[in-house]
Nucleic acid binder design. Structure first.
Lengths: 145, 145
DNA sequence: ACTTTATTGAGAATGAATCTCAAAATCACC
DNA sequence: GGTGATTTTGAGATTCATTCTCAATAAAGT
C-alpha cells in the first residue's frame, strides 16, 4: 500500500503534475478497492467518506493511474469502462456475464504459460495480458431455460 | 458466401424471426466487408447502394448476427463497438506491439481448449473470447537494445 | 387477400465520457 | 508564511454512440 502511493507520487512529479487533494483521494479510493471498479464506483465510494470529488476529476485522474502503470483498463462491462489493479496483483482471466454483468475470475498461470510459449515462438516480449471471455454465468445460464 | 447466408436464414427461422428486407440488406453489407466494421460503416455502405435502412435497424440487427455466430464483437475502437467476422475466419490470439502498433496473430485452439476447461469448472458458458497481450514485437525489442 | 403479429423508421431519450471556464488550489520563489 | 504564475477543480453543458418509443408497414400462415 505504501509503495503504491510512493510510485504514484513519483509518477506525478515526473510529469510535473501537482499533488492535489482530489488526486490523492482518488488514489486512496482506488487502493481500497481490491478488484474491479469503474468511475461510478469510485464516485460513490468517495462520497460515502464525505470527501467530495467531482465525476469530471475522476474521469481526468483515472487515465493518469493507468499511465502510471498501477491500474489498467479491462474489458468494458454494462457499457462502462472498467479498471483493475496491476501493481502487486496477480493477473486474472475474466469471464464476463453478458446477462448480469458479473465478473468471474479464474486461474491464469496455465494460460499465461501457454501464451508465453506462443509469443516466444514469434519473438514477442509480453508486458501485459488481456485475457477474457464473454458468455453466461452459471445462474443466468440456468435462468435462460 | 452462400453458406453464410443460408446459416443466417436458418438462424432467423429457428428463432421465429422474419426474413425482412432490411435484415437481408444488412447481412449482405456485412459480408461485403472482409474484416472489421462498426455500425456507422454499415450505415454508410448501405446508403451508397441506394438501399435505405435506418441506424436503429442496424443496431437491432447486428446483435442477431452476433448471436448467430457469424460475427463477434471485437475490442472497441474510437469509442465505437466494432465487429469482426468469425464464420470461415479462424480465431486468433492478438499480440499488439506497444511500440509500433503492429498486430501479430497467433494460433488459438490450444489456448481456447484450456480456457474452455477453466470456464466449465465455473459453470460458465463462453460465447466469445477476447485474448491478447501487449508488448514488444521482434523488431522493436531488438531496436530497444 | 385477410389478419395477426413482428418489424421498421424517425426522432426522442439515455447515459457515459468529455469539454468549458470561472474559481480555487498548488508550489516555487522570495 | 505570503505572493503570484500556473494547474487543477467543480458544476454544468455538451457530445455522441446506443437504445427506446410508437405509429405505420411488412411478413407469412390461413
Amino acid at each position: 500500500m505504501k509503495k503504491e502511493k510512493e510510485l504514484y507520487r513519483k509518477f506525478l512529479r515526473s510529469k510535473n503534475l501537482k499533488l492535489t487533494k482530489p488526486r490523492l483521494i482518488i488514489m486512496e479510493a482506488v487502493f481500497e478497492n481490491h478488484d474491479h471498479f469503474n468511475v461510478d464506483d469510485l464516485y460513490e465510494q468517495i462520497k460515502k467518506k464525505h470527501k467530495n470529488v467531482s465525476r469530471a476529476t475522476i474521469y481526468r485522474t483515472v487515465p493518469l493511474l493507468v499511465e502510471s502503470g498501477l491500474i489498467k483498463q479491462s474489458l468494458r462491462c454494462e457499457s462502462k469502462d472498467i479498471y483493475e489493479h496491476t501493481y502487486g496483483h496477480e493477473n486474472h482471466l475474466h469471464f464476463i456475464c453478458i446477462n448480469c454483468g458479473k465478473i468471474i475470475e479464474s486461474g491464469f498461470n496455465e494460460v499465461a504459460n501457454l501464451i508465453d510459449k506462443l509469443a516466444e515462438a514469434k519473438g514477442f516480449k509480453i508486458s501485459e495480458y488481456n485475457l477474457g471471455a464473454r458468455g453466461l454465468c452459471k445462474n443466468c445460464k440456468k435462468n435462460k431455460e
